[in-house]
Design a protein around this nucleic acid. Sequence first.
RNA 1: GCGGUCGUAGCUCAGCUGGUAGAGCGCCAGGUUGUGGUCUUGGAUGUCGCGGGUUCGAGCCCCGUCGAUCGCCCCA
Length: 415
Amino acid sequence: MANPPLQPVRGTRDLIGEDFRGHHHVVGTARRILALYGHEEWATPIFESTAVFARSLGETSDVVSKEMYSFEDRGGDSITLRPEGTAGVCRALVSNGLTQANLPRKVFYAGPMFRYERPQKGRYRQFHQIGAEVLGAAEPLADAEVIAAGWHILQELGISEGVVLEINTLGDAESRDAYRAALLEHFTAHQAALSPDSQVRLAKNPMRILDSKDEGDRAIVATAPTIQPFLTAAAAGFFDAVLRHLDTLGVPTRQNPRIVRGLDYYSHTAFEFVTDRLGAQGTVMAGGRYDGLVAEMGGPATPSVGWAAGVERLSMLLAAAPAAPRPVAVIPVGEAQEAAALGLLQDLRRAGLVAEIAYKGNLKRRMERANRLSARAALILGEDELAAGQVQLRDLDAGSQATIPLAEAVSRLGA
RNA sequence: GCGGUCGUAGCUCAGCUGGUAGAGCGCCAGGUUGUGGUCUUGGAUGUCGCGGGUUCGAGCCCCGUCGAUCGCCCCA
């Protein structure tokens, strides 16, 4: 019996061909744009002590309570595959003693994240995120700038048309406590009419009811108070400044008082770039301000702001992944011509041209292979031509062919 | 964790009231032993996701399971 076929683990997938090129294009574009904004790239470990996430994301958040890939390593320590990137970056800031010098510090990261969830369109158990953080900046301009960088990336990817920035403020602790109390009062009054899910939310985190998708809930939410009247003067002023800077930086915004971020560490600015083109997973880039997180990691108070974006989701919005490069095919007609062909092959590559040679096959086979690689041109080295210091240059799109001096091959192909 | 839909050739799919599999594309070979893509002729495709059950007989019916997909929860 043959071995049973192996399947990828549920919620994981291979990135091959067009999928990989789309993914690579998203990450590469983010890397390039964020460099323009002064972000440096960090690579933190893919797994951390479980405490790094449990403490920062909030013990009761779904991510911590039911979605983490946690395991005990051989030394008996509890380890978790990172479900998101910000906690690791903050931990790294503290671990590396970077909390004093050169703040604010702008960071970019990209890599795989892991959450044990039911897979769905645009949602995987191993997925990839890019993220930008501005660490150690309490000013509203930091919020606006990092959001502007995200918008810039979406524009550069050509997908900003169908995406809107929804933004809200969660206020400071004082505003939030007052608002939470008011919400609790409002929803408790309508408790019986709430959906079962929202009755649970009422006990755990009443703010979550605000973004419920349940029809009945929406009617109750519509009459719920917004946070605005509960904002302290400082919190209101902060949010106004963020909005003003975003306007100045050319980022269109839509205020949405129902936005609530899922992770506990957010305060003040909360935002999501959303689209209606991805079904239920409309959030494509999201983040906010997290002034208390670095302190949670054992560092000094380090007000910070940032966002993360799902690479798979951004990639799905791309009109088309960039095409693979089109090589030049070098084709020796007989074995005697192979040495000359290999020399030419390396000359082309040294000149920066993508060039390929088949490992075997006659002229017809090699031409077929060149076609399959969507080669743009073939350089055919025949015995007679080579003896005269010449090669055949065939344009595979036009189908035209010309005899040219071997020495001109590289320059004729536009090096 | 919960609910809906779906798993047939490498890909996209067809397969009648159950009678032991088909198309297109792709692939391979010839027409063209120094020329691809177009054209033409021929050829090979398969544990019908997996396991069990019903039946004389199951791709088709039943149960389970794995996977995909869409939605809920939640989230990027």
